[in-house]
Amino acid sequence: MLSSTDLDVIDRIWKGTIKISVRLSPLDLNIHHHKSPVYYLTAKRNSFLPLYYDDFLKFFKPYLNFATEQTFERLKLNLWLEFEDIPIKWNYPIGLLYDYLGLDLNAHVWNLKIHFNNYPTDFLIPQIKLDFMEKFWVNQIKEACYIQHSSAKPIMSLSTVDSSSLWESVKAHDFSQFNSIFYKKILPPVSTDLKHVPVKVYLPYSSSNFILQELVEPKDPETNLKITIKDVLNKWLPDLFSKNDPNYKYAFPLIQGIIVPGNVPICELYYLMTYLDGFLHICILMNS
């Protein structure tokens, strides 16, 4: 069960936001306008970009050079965002994307560019039907559930009402609704009862394939001690995280934009800091 302190921490994490500015790509800009208007938004860290697509479209539609020929649906499926020439993966949570691509402590706003043409299929997963975000999210959370229990039964046996209400809670960013299903009906009450903790580790300074994901148990089967985040990082990235080093000498882990102390058990971190897709996404940054 989540204690009131836990709930307070989760509440603060859910309230985490990123200030984003969006400009229209010059290729899509109507010739009557010389400069793209700027759309400013305060996006939730623990959310997904496609949940903001409708807002983007409503704002930019009058400025597009071809909008009249295309339906709202077609425009939405071809929409993509870019940061410094890099197409942004819509399937990653916004907070992870920011930590991974754009973390610049001197900048107050994350500057993105929006496109409605030339969808970069080499980099991004195609957006096939309007419910693409929901479909993707459902499968991610099922994968996470399988890792948690070695079976997807808890999520597969949810009633239709509960399943749709879980997705509604994601869309509306409503923690109490999310809590009533995800924490109470899918996760075991005690974090050490997890079979494995769904964790993904990202190394942003290398190729896009550099994502680590292995099964992590909540407790060490030999010592019966809870496995800490430092233990996991030491095992997966021994060069960057040595066992004896009490501080983060060369690199540090960032979750939801927060540098996490090394001695926190990974299973407890999962309950507090998991993203909406059921994974604890850890971004590794280098000390400079």
Binding site: F83, D85, I86, L101, L103, P204, S208, N209
Partner: peptide, 8 residues
């Protein structure tokens, strides 16, 4: 899977 890295 091509890799790209941001200017930042």
């Amino acid at each position: 899977a091509r890799s790209k890295i941001s200017t930042t």
